[in-house]
Design a protein around this nucleic acid. Structure first.
Length: 231
DNA sequence: GCGACAG
DNA sequence: ATCTTGTCGC
């Protein structure tokens, strides 16, 4: 486990954070299909908080994309770098997530984020931000539609419907389990939406949420507990 | 102006 | 995100 410091020059206000997004968003690459599902590595990242003690813990879990078995894991802890503001989630999560990714002993491959990529008020959610900063292909998988609208997909696993900002498709509602609430997939960096959805389906053989996010969620909670209950 | 709002 | 008991179901 590594310890993180809030980066020098990190935005201190919402206005500064939005300015950073407006600058970095121009560097998102949307013309690549991304790595094919079922090959190489797929990495889940997630973050847990103890606002009371100002502690944040992140985890990165690398899976073999073909077998979904864990290849490597890493965690990082630090101080909370930004309050939760809808649309500015990345500033709360990114420093610790970057440290966890840096601590991995192997290449992450495609990174699966908790939250959004293009499906964002300024089209630059956590997944896009993390992608631009690392150069890695990323996608966002969220549990809620945020402010966007969608029609309920057909009840069968694999069904989709557009996630819409007005009439613009910013992502897709994807049914990963028969009759269960869909997840909300959007492109982060260096992937396309079809491929992103194919990856999510490959990562959900049993549960609604991708194995990557389930593994990362469990690990960052454990890291937070250990950072909080001990030294 | 008020409410809603990824995690 | 996090606070939280029991409960229905495979």
């Amino acid at each position: 486990m590594t310890t993180v410091r809030i980066p020098a020059g990190w935005p201190a206000t919402e206005e500064q954070a939005r300015a950073v997004q407006d600058e970095l968003r121009t560097r998102v690459l949307l013309d690549e299909p991304g790595p094919p599902p079922g090959t190489g590595h797929v990495t889940g990242v997630d973050v847990a908080y103890d606002d009371e003690r100002d502690v944040v813990a992140a985890a990165a879990v690398v899976l073999d994309a073909a077998t979904l078995e864990v290849v490597a894991e890493a965690t990082a802890v630090g101080r909370i770098s930004f309050p939760y503001v809808p649309g500015l989630l990345a500033f709360r999560e990114i420093p610790t997530v970057l440290a966890a990714l840096d601590a991995l002993p192997c290449r992450p491959g495609l990174v699966v984020c908790d939250g959004y990529g293009l499906a964002h008020p300024r089209r630059f959610g956590l997944a896009g931000h993390l992608g631009v900063l690392t150069g890695l292909p990323t996608i966002g998988v969220a549990k809620n539609p945020f402010t966007f609208t969608y029609d309920d997909p057909d009840a069968s696993r694999g069904s989709t419907s557009p996630l819409l900002a007005d009439s613009e498709e910013v992502g897709r509602a994807l049914r990963t389990r028969d009759g269960v609430k869909p997840v909300f997939v959007s492109v982060g960096h260096r992937t396309d939406l079809d491929n992103a959805c194919a990856h999510v389906l490959a990562l959900t053989p049993k549960y609604r949420l991708p194995e990557t996010t389930r593994r990362a969620d469990a690990l960052c909670r454990e890291a937070l507990r250990e950072a909080t209950e001990h030294g």
